[in-house]
């Protein structure tokens, strides 16, 4: 795993022996994985391999589910986010998340969605600037600048997803987690979001889950391949620079997957 070695030291986020459970069921087992700064790391694998659960552990949203718990550590800048005195709310401000299906807040306007977790204590003008910056960053500003006060539900699915990205970006996090951000979108909207992801790495460290291998190849710098073992526990099989993982995988199971032999 040479990529991990070269990335060591510049990793912003890392898991150490991370296992995640729903009640007694272990969904992710002993994953140690580093996410280099200002790069896109894709987590790929077939359905049910635990990749979404892994992602949800990274901002402590996993523990919102009933009887969900975690073993092991997740280090953000060297600090364990599961440490005893760490407030999950503070962690979620530093690690934003975009979900599989666009989930704009239906009762807030487009503007208020963008400002849902930013702009506290700012005056009107500063708020507008903050919202504009976030919507620009999400490549949505030009499409919504004339209807900021309207409902987000009138936007297309792709626009709604970019609004969710803007909402996350506005909080100025360090890491952006994306859970199959294009799974519910058409190819054109997908292309827009993929282009956006490449641009967002100027500022953010991105971890994206996808079961679309072409997408991982297109947008990511590093790729991690996960697979469920015979007990249904998600395991990390290998991680490498995306180019290498897709051309010269070191594990035969990775090769089987990327050549389409299963999943």
């Amino acid at each position: 795993m040479s990529a991990v070695a070269t990335a060591a030291g510049q990793e912003l986020l890392a898991t150490k022996d991370l296992s995640a459970y729903y009640g007694e069921r272990e969904a992710v087992g002993n994953v140690s994985l580093s996410f280099p700064r200002k790069a896109v790391t894709a987590v790929i694998g077939p359905s049910g391999c635990g990749k979404t659960t892994l992602l949800r552990c990274l901002n402590r949203i996993h523990e919102v589910a009933f009887e969900a718990r975690v073993k092991g550590r997740v280090l953000l800048d060297g600090e364990d986010i599961y440490g005893g005195d760490v407030d999950p709310m503070a962690i979620r401000r530093r690690i934003g998340m975009v979900f599989q299906r666009p989930n704009p807040f239906p009762t807030l306007s487009i503007l208020d969605n963008a400002l849902a977790c930013a702009g506290k204590g700012l005056n009107r003008r500063q708020k507008m600037e903050c919202a504009e910056r976030a919507l620009h960053a999400a490549a949505l500003w030009d499409e919504v600048k004339d209807k900021l006060r309207t409902s987000p539900l009138r936007l297309s699915g792709g626009q709604q997803q970019r609004l969710c990205i803007a909402r996350a970006v506005a909080a100025e996090p360090e890491v952006l987690l994306m859970d199959e951000p294009t799974a519910s979108l058409d190819p054109i909207a997908t292309a827009v979001i993929e282009e956006l992801m490449a641009r967002l790495t100027d500022e953010f460290t991105i971890v994206a889950v996808t079961h679309n291998m072409q997408q991982a190849a297109r947008v990511s710098d590093y790729s991690a391949f996960m697979l469920a073992d015979e007990h249904g526990v998600g395991r990390l099989i290998e991680v490498d620079e995306t180019g290498k993982l897709f051309t010269k995988p070191s594990d035969p199971r990775t090769e089987d997957y990327i050549t389409g032999r299963f999943g």
């Binding site: 709310m89 979620r92 401000r93 989930n103 807040f105 849902a116 977790c117 969710c164 909402r167 909080a171």
Partner: peptide, 21 residues
């Protein structure tokens, strides 16, 4: 649940996510 999780993922407190969103 996605609406609630969206609010929590932004760092809102449980109470604010419930009452505000």
């Amino acid at each position: 649940q996605t609406v609630r999780e969206g609010a929590l993922a932004l760092g809102m407190s449980n109470f604010r996510a419930t009452v505000g969103i």
